[in-house]
Nucleic acid binder design. Structure first.
Length: 636
RNA sequence: GCCGAUGUAGCUCAGCUGGUAGAGCAAACGAUUCGUAAUCGUUAGGUCAGGAGUUCAAAUCUCCUCAUCGGCUCCA
C-alpha cells in the first residue's frame, strides 16, 4: 500500500498527498486556503477529515451556498451550546440550517423573552471569540443512546431509536461542553462564524406533528462576514416595504377589518378595479380557450355534500346554515354545481371535452392562526374550472392547462416552480386509474419541457396533482395554479357519456385553477410589483396635475378627454405646490402624471412624467390617449 | 387550533416604576399661485381593541374575549 494518495483538484491537477492528510492539507497543497469544508466525491465533509483513498476534492468556501449552510448549521449548534450553558435544564431537540438561516428547537416551560435572546447572543459571541474546535466522533447506536440518556437529552434518544435498522453507527459533534447528534459537516472551529443574529422565537411541534409537544424554536441567521449579514438584514427590511398588507393600505386597495370579521376582505374602489381587470382578462382568455362560463349558488343542500364526500372529509372546514328546516352547506368548492350542469343532459363522446369555468366564490373555515392578509382568507374566489373528458383526452387537456398557466404567468410576470404530487398512502381508486392519471400529468410536463419536482405521496386522496408555486416578497412560496385528476366525483355523481360504441362510459374529471384564489393572487401580485403595476393593471393610469389654480379649467378638460377615452384617470387640482402633487402621484405609483400649466395650455399639450421620474416630451392629449390604449391592449 | 408577541387620533409612533393622553404626517379652514418627491399658519380629531376585576385612582396591574403580527400544523 502506497503512503501517498492520488488526489485530483478542480483545476484538473492531480497531486500525490500523504495518506491520512486532512482535506485542509490537501487543499492547501493546491493553493486553496479559504475553504470552510470540503467536498469529496460530491459529499460534504469536515475540513479536518482525514483522507485514506484516492479521490477528487473541492473546497467549499464560506460564502458559497453550501458553505453558508455549513456555517449556519454550526451557528445553530453554537446557539444550542449557549442556551444549555445559560439554562442547563433545557432539553435540545433539533437544529438545522434552513433557506436563509437556521433554527434550534428547545423544550423549556417558560417562554424565551427578547432579553433571553440578547443573553444568548452575548454567550454565542463569547463562544465564537473562544474559537473552540468542532470535533467529530463516530460511535455505535447503543453508545450514542447511552451518552444522550446520561445527558438527559430524551429527544436525541428518540431520534437515534427511530433511525432505520441498517444504520449501525452514528456521528456526534462536540464543541466546548456541548454534544450533539449530527451528521455534519461543521466548520473547523466556532470562530469561523463571521456574523450572526438571532431573529425570532416561535412555537413548533416536535417533529412537525400537532399531536406532539410544542417546543420553542429560536430562528437566526449567520454569514461569513458582518457585511453580508447587514446586506441580508437590509434586504429583509426592503422586502417588508413590499408587503401587500402595507401597500394595500398605502394605495387604498382593500381592508380586512375586525368589525367585519377575520379573513374577510373588503375591496376598496382601487383594489376592486385591479381585481376587475384581472377577472376581465381571465374571462376573455377562458372563452378563447374553449371554456364555457357557468355559475352555481352559494349554498347547496347538505345531502349533496354528503354525496360528494365533502361532508365526511371536509366538514370541519365548512359553514352550514338552515333554510326552512333543511340543512344547507355554504360551498367550499365549486365542483358540485358543475356536476349538476353536466348531468342535466345526456352527453355524447362528441360533446367532450366539456370545460366549465366559474369565478367561484367559496367559504372555508380556516383556522384562526393561519389567516394572512389576502393570502389566507375565509372567503375567496377561485378561477375554477372542471374539465370533463374521456381518458384518451386527459393528456392533451392537461397540456392545455399547463399552457394556460404558462401564458398567464408570462402576462403577469411571474416565475414559478412546478411540483408533481403522487399517490398518497391513504387513497381511493384503482391502480390503473392512478397510473393513467399520474403518467398523463407527468407526460404533459415532459412533453411541454417543464422542469418539476416530484412530491411522493402528496397527492389528493382522489387523485394526483400538479401544483404551480410563485413567491412573495419574503420568498415564501404560495400555491396558485393546480391541476388535479379526480375519479371520485364522476363516480359518485354517476356521470357518463355515450361512446362511439353506443354504451355508457365514465368520463374523467380535471379540477384546475390558473391564478388560484384571486385574493391570494392579488396579494402576490402586489408584492411582486411593489404596487407599481403595469399600465394595463393600474387602477389609476394617469393623474392630471395642475401647476396653479388658474390651470384648473384646462386640467378638467384634459381629464374629461381621458375619461371618455376609457383611461382610468384622476385630477389633482388641489391648491398645493407642483412638487407636492408630483410626489403624491409617485407614492401612489400612478404610471403617468400629466402636468398642465401655461405652456401646455398655449400648445394644447400635457407634460408627461412617468412613474419613477422619467420626463417625457410634451404631447397632445390625443397622442397620449393613443399610446395608453395601445399599451393596455398589449397587456403592458 | 397550538406557541409567543402586539393592539393608543385616518396613518406611523411617544406615553418611565398606576395620578384620567401627546408628536409628525394626513384632514378642515385661511394665507400663498408656485414647473416635476413634502409652502406657511390656525383648528378639529382618541370609550387608549372590547369586557370584567384590583385600587381612592388604570392606557399603565390581573383575568377573559376579539383582532393583528411571527412561526408550527393545515391549505387556494
Amino acid at each position: 500500500m502506497s503512503n501517498y494518495l492520488k488526489i485530483s483538484f478542480p483545476s484538473g491537477t492531480v497531486r500525490d498527498v500523504p495518506r491520512g492528510s486532512s482535506a485542509r492539507e490537501a487543499l492547501e497543497l493546491d493553493g486553496h486556503f479559504l475553504a470552510v469544508a470540503a467536498s469529496i466525491a460530491d459529499k460534504a465533509v469536515d475540513i479536518n477529515a482525514a483522507l485514506y483513498e484516492d479521490c477528487s476534492i473541492v473546497g467549499i468556501e464560506a460564502n458559497s451556498q453550501q458553505g453558508l449552510e455549513i456555517i449556519r448549521h454550526s451557528a445553530s449548534h453554537i446557539m444550542a451550546e449557549a442556551v444549555k450553558s445559560l439554562f442547563p435544564a433545557i432539553k435540545v431537540a433539533i437544529g438545522p440550517a434552513i433557506e436563509s438561516g437556521f433554527y434550534y428547537d428547545f423544550e423549556r416551560e417558560e417562554p424565551f423573552t427578547s432579553a433571553d435572546l440578547e443573553l444568548i447572543e452575548q454567550k454565542m459571541r463569547e463562544i465564537i471569540a473562544e474559537d473552540g474546535a468542532f470535533s467529530r466522533e463516530e460511535m455505535s447506536r447503543s453508545e450514542a443512546t447511552l451518552l444522550f440518556e446520561k445527558l438527559g437529552e430524551s429527544y436525541k434518544v428518540e431520534l437515534i431509536n427511530d433511525l432505520p435498522p441498517e444504520v449501525t453507527n452514528v456521528s456526534i459533534y462536540r464543541q466546548g461542553d456541548f454534544v450533539d447528534l449530527c451528521r455534519g459537516p461543521h466548520i473547523a472551529s466556532t470562530g469561523k462564524v463571521g456574523a450572526f443574529k438571532l431573529l425570532s422565537v416561535a412555537g413548533a411541534y416536535w417533529r412537525g406533528d400537532e399531536k406532539n409537544k410544542m417546543l420553542q424554536r429560536i430562528y437566526g441567521t449567520a454569514f461569513s462576514s458582518k457585511q453580508e449579514l447587514d446586506e441580508y438584514l437590509h434586504l429583509v427590511e426592503e422586502a417588508k416595504r413590499r408587503d401587500h398588507r402595507r401597500i394595500g393600505k398605502d394605495l387604498d386597495l382593500f381592508q380586512v377589518s375586525e368589525e367585519a370579521g377575520a379573513g374577510l376582505v373588503i375591496f376598496h374602489p382601487k383594489g376592486m378595479m385591479l381585481r376587475y381587470l384581472i377577472e376581465e382578462w381571465e374571462r376573455k382568455e377562458h372563452i378563447k380557450r374553449g371554456y364555457q362560463m357557468v355559475m352555481g349558488p352559494q349554498i347547496l343542500k347538505a345531502d349533496l355534500w354528503k354525496l360528494s364526500g365533502h361532508y365526511d372529509n371536509y366538514r370541519e372546514n365548512m359553514y352550514f346554515t338552515e333554510v326552512d328546516g333543511q340543512s344547507y352547506g355554504i360551498k367550499p368548492m365549486n365542483c358540485i354545481s358543475h356536476m349538476l350542469i353536466y348531468k342535466s343532459q345526456l352527453r355524447s363522446y362528441r360533446d367532450l371535452p366539456i370545460r366549465y369555468f366559474e369565478l367561484g366564490t367559496v367559504h372555508r373555515h380556516e383556522k384562526a392562526g393561519v389567516l394572512h392578509g389576502l393570502m389566507r382568507v375565509r372567503q375567496f374566489t377561485q378561477d375554477d374550472a372542471h374539465i370533463i373528458c374521456t381518458p384518451e383526452q386527459l393528456s392533451s387537456e392537461i397540456k392545455g392547462v399547463a399552457d394556460f398557466v404558462a401564458t398567464a404567468m408570462q402576462i403577469f410576470g411571474f416565475e414559478y416552480e412546478v411540483e408533481l404530487s403522487t399517490r398518497p398512502v391513504k387513497s381511493i381508486g384503482s391502480d390503473s386509474d392512478w397510473e393513467l392519471a399520474t403518467s398523463a400529468l407527468r407526460g404533459a410536463l415532459v412533453e411541454s419541457a417543464i422542469p418539476y419536482d416530484v412530491h411522493q405521496g402528496d397527492g389528493a386522496f382522489y387523485g394526483p396533482k400538479i401544483d404551480f408555486k410563485i413567491k412573495d416578497a419574503l420568498n415564501r412560496k404560495w400555491q396558485c395554479a393546480t391541476i388535479q385528476c379526480d375519479f371520485t366525483l364522476p363516480e359518485r355523481f354517476e356521470l357518463h357519456y355515450i361512446g362511439e360504441d353506443g354504451l355508457r362510459h365514465r368520463p374523467v374529471m380535471l379540477h384546475r385553477v390558473i391564478l388560484g384564489a384571486i385574493e391570494r393572487f392579488m396579494g402576490v401580485l402586489i408584492e411582486h410589483f411593489a404596487g407599481a403595476f403595469p399600465l394595463w393593471l393600474s387602477p389609476v393610469q394617469a393623474v392630471v396635475v395642475t401647476v396653479t389654480d388658474k390651470h384648473i379649467p384646462y386640467g378638467q378638460k384634459v381629464l374629461e378627454l381621458l375619461k371618455s377615452a376609457g383611461i382610468r384617470s384622476e385630477g389633482d387640482f388641489r391648491n398645493e405646490k407642483l412638487g407636492y402633487k408630483v410626489r403624491e402621484a409617485q407614492l401612489q405609483k400612478t404610471p403617468y402624471a400629466l402636468v398642465v400649466g401655461d405652456k401646455e395650455i398655449e400648445n394644447g399639450t400635457v407634460a408627461l412624467r412617468k412613474r419613477g421620474g422619467e420626463q417625457l416630451p410634451s404631447v397632445s392629449v390625443e397622442e397620449f390617449i393613443r399610446e395608453v390604449v395601445s399599451l393596455s391592449q398589449r397587456y403592458e
